[in-house]
Amino acid sequence: MKLSNIVENLSLEVKTGENNLQNDVTGAYISDLLSDVMANGKEGNVWITLQTHLNIVAVSGLKNLAGIIIVNNRPVQEDVLQKAESEKVTIMSTPLPAFEIAGKLYQLLNG
């Protein structure tokens, strides 16, 4: 499934990386720990997290993730957004908590 379908179906707000929405999504991973995503995230995964530290951009880039969904409408600092934009990393945002957005995505990808 394309990232753009997910954005539309889950009503995500796209904050950076508008140009990558045609990317294919292979699945998803939830974690707030950078080392965990480095170890277990897979290429093309959407990463669902509360973590807004600057290093999420590098992790997403290194693992070739399809994008990052920040949950609970957590504020993302300007420097993080700028880095994401320049590294072509897609950051999206939702008011829903991780459990619910994961549930909806799971149904969308497996339903």
Binding site: Y29, N40, L96, P97, A98, F99, G103, Q107
Partner: peptide, 20 residues
């Protein structure tokens, strides 16, 4: 299961998320 799959399976079975 990973956190994503565990969440997906429970949500599918009808468990809601915590509210704000």
């Amino acid at each position: 299961f990973c956190m994503y799959t565990a969440s997906g399976k429970l949500y599918e079975a009808g468990l809601p998320g915590c509210l704000f």
